[in-house]
């Protein structure tokens, strides 16, 4: 028996097991201790060759309002920390950003995408209003048969009522708990429509 190669292989297997274990541990910590936020969504439905079918989530709040000169030195894809707050309707939005983790409040570790512009209704010109950021919870995996139906339900629901994702955030990391349409869990809704 070759002792050294076997020992090395043992160490490799241990490392291979450590990666999924640490992935599970960190996400379970977020789900257990993270603060819960509701993000308004706009879902679409693609597929991933390795991970299966999912509902891709677009979010209404994917930007941070700030002065133009504040974001001038940001590089594309640069890591930033976005502060999360809740508005009067109970939905989450990003209120500010910093290059290091803020000492107080809930924040999300993300990356800078590009400038956020909006049309000024008075001048009718596009003006820089802030920055767009990457949303690191844009996938909601579902059963391959339910995902297209869930997407349809969510799309219809978005027209008439609010559709949102419940996300838990802890120390910059975020995990989606569930997605809601017509006030019900998307999974349950897709399963119900299936039985009908």
């Amino acid at each position: 028996m070759k002792k050294l190669p076997t020992l090395i292989l043992g160490a490799v297997i241990a490392a291979q097991l450590t990666v999924p274990v640490s992935m599970i541990r960190s996400r379970e910590l977020v789900l257990k201790n993270g603060e819960c936020f509701r993000f308004k969504t706009r879902p679409i439905d693609p597929a991933d060759p390795f991970q299966g079918r999912y509902v891709r989530l677009g979010f209404e709040s994917d930007h941070i309002l700030c002065e133009k000169q504040e974001s001038e030195n940001l590089d594309h894809k640069q890591k930033i920390y976005a502060t999360v707050e809740t508005d009067s309707e109970g939905f989450a939005y990003f209120s500010g950003w910093s290059l290091s983790p803020p000492e107080t409040g809930t924040y999300l570790e993300t990356r800078y995408r590009n400038i956020y512009s909006a049309r000024n209704p008075e001048t009718e010109k596009w003006e820089t209003k802030g920055i767009r950021i990457e949303i690191p919870f844009d996938r909601f995996y579902m059963d391959e048969t339910k995902a297209p139906r869930a997407e349809r339900i969510a799309r219809d629901a978005t027209r008439t009522t609010n559709c949102w994702a419940e996300v838990r955030i802890l120390e910059g990391k975020a995990v989606i708990e569930d997605v809601f349409a017509e006030g019900q869990s998307l999974r349950e809704l897709a399963a119900k429509k299936d039985k009908k």
Partner: peptide, 26 residues
């Protein structure tokens, strides 16, 4: 497969390069 299933279970974001890099190095 193992990393992908955990990504699916916890709805991890589409960080393809990180996924492929971890897989390749392991």
């Amino acid at each position: 497969a193992s990393i992908a299933l955990i990504g699916q279970t916890y709805h991890l974001p589409s960080d393809t390069p990180a996924f492929l890099l971890s897989w390749a190095l392991l």
